[in-house]
Design a binder for these strands. Structure first.
Lengths: 209, 209, 209, 209
DNA sequence: AATGAATGAGCCTTCATTCAT
DNA sequence: GATGAATGAAGGCTCATTCAT
């Protein structure tokens, strides 16, 4: 049923000097679908209805539905990774760095709750698809960056010497757990910022010596 | 479904040692489906094929596919809650109790990884369905039990006086995070028992004064 | 899903000196179903849910779904026939008799619009079922009564000598047509009583000489 | 369905003499199904089997089974309206016009009994579906045309000054009643042409002054 | 690059009916 | 008379995907 709910003009004219390209339009439409009713609501047809692209166009750009979801996932995943890395880069000293990992994550979730929710929801879909390897690699990259940052501090005995498999969960577990709960039951819990200090402090307690 | 407004099957199946009845047979078949390829593989037809029940029989007992998934979810959720509560009940003293929360959870996950995986996978499905309220209530019940246990220790200053919304994430976040990762990429990570002490100790660090 | 919406007590106690029997309860429930969403909504399960009877009980009394619908249909059809016959019996003279046919029908429809609507809706179902012969017989009976009443008046030349196949449509066509329209779009048309005289007069015009 | 809010298929199928397109093929197949065993026999699968279209194709063009039935209904309803209007347009004078309304209807029914039967059967389905408003509008349109035609004759006192709500039933009630009966019990009643004059005359009697 | 009609497997659900208790 | 678990055919609908234009 083409076009029935088409809302956006084919090429949002005049929003900037350049028209946003089809790919971004499609990705945004896919995210909007997921926002409404979960990842399972991201169907080719729903995306098409939202952004006015044709079925063929979506396939031209993303190859498959799985490809579309994965593209959106990695897009957001990378954005999140950059946000955390930025926070870490601007932190000075050990404790501040640990806190930056937590608050960098937390701030990004608060800034882009919809994208954060999608990341939680879509992960298992990507993990069980053909880009599973990419996901493992991306996750490992992020973990490695975290571990690399910790390394010197562990070496000098400033933080516990923890196995690298468990360290990420110890540092990020609480903030992820709370953010997931917050995103999952809107209006039921205070925003993560409320517990910014507590969460950061808890990460520090987890690793300090 | 004998009583559509009741939360649990009318005749708590399998509580006694008798021949497993249809309801339990169906629930087990549903779990088996989910074990193979994730919750999305729980289709009425797949369940039917596995346990020999008819389509109509499944609907008679569970009302809908959603109802079946939810029934299985709450069945397992309650089992998990009992496992944690059991561990907590047998613990003596403050620190041991904190550790019991973590290890009770961890041990149950290791004991029933399939059921644990289902809990992670199915939660969002239940949360976005008609039994969302039941889920929120069940989660709150569990949290309240945890908070009630902490209360006297907070009162006497033995543990930090933390807001009740964040406490569960601080205590359980790391172990949940790791278990989720372990269940999600089989063979990639060491079993949770490997980090039993670290995880328990981290929970203790999170709350101690 | 037994009983979920059971509203009526098993045996409406104390409504009269005697409890209405199961059969009537079931028939009423079937009519209620049809009222809500049309004859197609009369399913064994919907009836069961409404009146608290068991599936088996319904089958015990009516043999099949078709049997239930037919039983209700003939019940109402006979009631309607009696209403018209009563009106005719109390009329005196030719013109008054013709009017009584119309107004007897009309008054009954206004008195029992739900039952009238069911008659319109269910007729084709009964007509294509195993009781088709009964329906033809009942309809013919009613027509024969009408024709028998007209006979002497036709013989003496007071009314047109019309073929018996067409006479019923000439007399009852307009009032049936309007009642059908009125029942079909509630609130859109004035009640049939508004046109009592016009409709009666038109029937008279149709047959008078 | 190319445009879900449009009432008619976007490309008025079959208006030209070209190869019948899919939409018309599907509509014809649906009508064929209904001819065999009534509207309830119009199942997606039966239609598919008849015309060789795929399930998806039917949904692409009509959105739902309800949409298919409604599309066919309005197609036929419009055809019938045109037939009556044509007869009316070719009539000269008052009495001839009144007769044309009746015989125009009657002739069309005799010409296309299957389509006429479908109209009777499907009306309540359309009336209780999402296109109820369209049906009311279409019916009102037809009535308005009839009333507009009568207006000058009423104004000059040549016909009774009847309320517009009842006029259509007075004029068309008998012929509709008989045609319905004839279509409903094939072989039991003489064809409507047998009563062409009687029915036309009766309509005239109903409205003349 | 884009379009949209066509495909058909697969899913959820409803339903009349049977039968052992 | 009554009960309700069980059956399985049948139906409506969604969806990812292909392909000719």
């Amino acid at each position: 049923m083409p076009d029935e709910t088409s809302v956006a003009p084919r090429t949002s004219p005049g929003t900037r000097g350049t028209t946003p390209d089809r790919q971004r339009l499609i990705l945004q439409a896919a995210l909007d679908c997921a926002m409404d009713c979960g990842v399972d609501a991201v169907s080719i047809d729903a995306v098409r209805a939202r952004c006015g692209a044709s079925v063929g166009s979506i396939y031209h750009h993303f190859g498959s539905k799985e490809g579309l979801v994965a593209a959106l996932f990695f897009d957001i995943f990378d954005e999140q990774s950059r946000a955390i890395q930025d926070a870490l880069d601007h932190a000075q000293g050990l404790r501040e760095g640990v806190c930056a990992l937590v608050t960098g994550y937390l701030d990004w979730v608060v800034l882009a709750p919809d994208r954060a929710r999608f990341l939680f929801q879509a992960r298992s879909h990507v993990a069980s698809g053909p880009r599973r390897a990419d996901l493992l690699a991306a996750a490992q990259n992020r973990n490695r960056a975290l571990l690399r940052w910790f390394e010197p501090h562990q070496a000098c005995g400033a933080v516990r010497d923890l196995p690298c498999d468990i360290l990420p969960s110890l540092v990020m577990g609480p903030v992820q757990s709370y953010c997931r709960a917050w995103l999952g039951s809107p209006g039921q819990l205070p925003g993560p910022q409320t517990f910014r200090e507590i969460l950061a402090d808890t990460a520090w307690r987890a690793v300090r010596n």
